[in-house]
Structures are given as C-alpha cells and as structure tokens.
C-alpha cells in the first residue's frame, strides 16, 4: 500500500465540489410526500373500497390505516437517519409504536384466495387487482427509496434496508386498505421484506461497498 501522505496528495489533487445531501428529515419528507401522492393516485385510479363507509365507522379500521401510514413515515425517517454514519441506531426503534397499530389487522386473504382457486378456473379478479395494487404501490416507491438511500452510501446498509422495506410495505398497505376489501397486510409485508432479505444477503456476499456504489 502507498504511504498515507501519497494517498492524501492523491485524494486532494483535483478535488471537485460535491452536492451535499439534504438533511435526512427533509429527504424523508420528500419520500413520504411521494408515497402519499402515489396512494392518492392509486385510489383515484381504482376507487375506494366498496365498504369504506362501513369501515370508517370502525375505530379499528382507523387505527390500522393510520398505523400503516405512520409506520411508513417513521420507517422512512429511520432509514434516512441511519443511512448516515453519525446517527444513532436508536432511530430504528421509531417505527415500533405505529407498527403495533398496523399489526392489529394483519391478514393474508389476498394470497389465500389466489391459492385456493381450483386449477383451470378463472382467477378471481379482486385477488389479482389486490396483488396489482400492492405491486403498483411497492415497486415505484422501492425504486426511488433505494436510489435515495444508496446516494448516502450507508456504512451499515443492512438496518437501512430493513427500515426501507418496512416503509414501503406500510405505504403499500395504506393504499391497499383504502382500495380493497380483503385483508392482506401480512402479505404486503412479506412481499416487501423478501427483497430486503435478498439485498441483505447480497451485501453479505458481495460486500456493502460494491452494492451501494453500484446503486448510487
């Protein structure tokens, strides 16, 4: 390895200005706004669930819906904060209280319906639309969040990936709860945590620097 003085000379020679990252709170706010707008857009395109008037009268529905959205917001903030080296890991605890509210109405119905369809029978349209909603909410948000987080080049990316996946799942379920009658929160969570598990596994295999720099 070259001498440290040589390295310093090399790093400081021809130094170019860099665009500073915005504060994590502001960056999180941007993604929360995007997620909320996407939820609104999906509701506009697909319409509210047919039993919305009935469900709005139930406190449990409000709790679950609010819990899902707040989980998304809190996990987004936690992901952006912990993507920076000098921020405490305690930020990862922030989504826990809203997760409890969200957990109150977990269900797998969407997938269960789909699996129970006999072979050869036409697939139940609502189950397909349910999965579509989950994917339409999850994929764009996951792409944007991944790009934004990778720009920070987190030194410990695994907890950031988990928090990000939780945020996407919670926002996707917020959309789902407004549009579909079936309960599928656990399915939404599984769909989003699985890619996070893959990312964390890849980080273990290829090293965090390679993966984050490739995404940045």
């Amino acid at each position: 390895m070259a001498s440290t003085e040589d390295l310093i000379a090399k790093l400081s020679a021809g130094l170019t200005p860099v665009a500073r990252l915005m504060r994590p709170g502001l960056r999180a706010l941007g993604l929360i706004a995007l997620a909320t707008a996407l939820i609104g857009l999906l509701v506009l395109l697909r319409g509210f669930r047919s039993d919305l008037a009935l469900r709005l009268a139930e406190p449990s529905y409000w709790l679950q819906l609010t819990g899902a959205w707040l989980t998304g917001a809190a996990a987004t903030l936690a992901a952006f904060e912990t993507s920076l080296p000098d921020r405490p890991r305690a930020w990862l605890l922030l989504p826990l209280p809203p997760v409890v509210l969200w957990l109150s109405g977990f269900g797998w119905t969407c997938l269960a319906d789909w699996i129970q369809i006999p072979s050869g029978a036409p697939i139940a349209s609502d189950s397909v639309r349910c999965l579509e909603t989950i994917m339409l909410a999850s994929l764009p948000l996951a792409f944007v969040l991944w790009r934004m987080l990778a720009r920070a080049r987190p030194l410990a990316p695994a907890p950031v990936a988990w928090a990000g996946a939780l945020a996407i799942a919670a926002f996707a379920d917020s959309a789902h709860l407004l549009i579909h009658v079936v309960q599928a929160s656990a399915l939404v969570l599984a769909i989003n945590l699985l890619p996070a598990a893959v990312i964390v596994a890849l980080l273990g295999v290829f090293g965090q620097r390679g993966l984050t720099s490739a995404a940045a």
Partner: peptide
Amino acid sequence: QDVLITLHSIRHSYDPARPFAPWLAAV
C-alpha cells in the same frame, strides 16, 4: 488509509451544521 478513502467517498454526506469529529469518529 481505509478511513481516509471512505471519508473521501462519502464526503457529500457530511452536514457542515453538525460537528465534524463525531461524524469522523463514526466513519
């Protein structure tokens, strides 16, 4: 040297409104 290279690659993530030493120590 490893720390210096990492510092260089993430220097855009430092917020000048915050103290530098804790950021450097964390890296």
